[in-house]
Amino acid sequence: MEDSATPTQMPALTVGEFLEKNRSAVRLDPGSDPALLARRITKKRLQKLGMALAGFAEYIQDGRIYVFGNTEASYCRSRSAEQLREVIAKLAPRLNTGILVTQGLAPPPVLAEFARQQGLPILRTELDSSTAIYRFTEFLEIELSPRMILHGLLMDVYGLGVLIGGESGIGKSECALELILRGHRLVADDVVDLRNVGGKHLIGESPPPVRNLLELRGIGILNVREMFGISAVSRMKEVIFYIHLERWHSQKAYDRLGFSWQRREVFGVELPSMSIPVAPGRNLSVLVEVACRVFLMRSSGQHPMGDLCRILADISGSSDGTEEVAP
């Protein structure tokens, strides 16, 4: 599956998308032309304009949203319009994405005039600067992380984000249906949109056109949300466990003891994983559900194989093979 997984281009978000996704907190300044919403945000960190207003503009970068808050407003009040105009003009070449004015302040006339000339959108929020920076940095951290599309199934089983892989036709969608009927939630079938957040977290969701859809051979495409209700689907989930479904090979050695985890790298993040062989008479959804229970138990330190080893060691008086196995 690694070769079916290719990272997409450098992630970016337009200012319009930023507004749309933060509708409850941010709006466009009435003086800004909506045509400017096509400007692209490419950097995750928001930064205060701060010292740039005093003429130190070295750190101003393309693709970043700059924050104009109380500090900046009171600094601007201490300067004449002429002084400000001169300093702000120097920011022009690299200040090209947008300015977020916090605390419900109105942008000072000099700034508004500069934005109009530069074609720079001004956004406004009632939040204070530190809250806005924290909140929108976290938002951009997720939105601007590297993304890729993976062929597989993402389910929320007991609250665990489980990514299920395996070749076409192995029964992933049928497994999804049965898991849904057992009360678990579908995140994405067949096409999983994954983001690598900070190299540590994998967040998965369905690409919007096929969200809530499930394809079953012989039946067709179902809308799971319409058919089974809102609790049968989940919009987005962090992937923390990987299950690979594969055809049963009589020659291959499968894990018989459940001693330790296999590890599998998915899009730069290492996940605990299990390979489950598929064969007639093996009920996939039950196996996946039990695998998730095992995962939860191991995560809390419960380990039947460890217990068995201890009992055997007590009987034989040796201490062989009793080391704890962490998930």
């Binding site: 079916s4 997984a5 290719t6 990272p7 997409t8 281009q9 890729m148 599309i149 062929h151 076409s168 036709g169 079938d189 067949d190 096409v191 096929v210 859809l213 394809e215 495409i221």
Partner: peptide, 12 residues
């Protein structure tokens, strides 16, 4: 785009 879609997946 760089992402590959599985040709055996109708949703893809």
């Amino acid at each position: 785009r760089l992402e590959w879609i599985d040709g055996k997946s109708i949703l893809g």
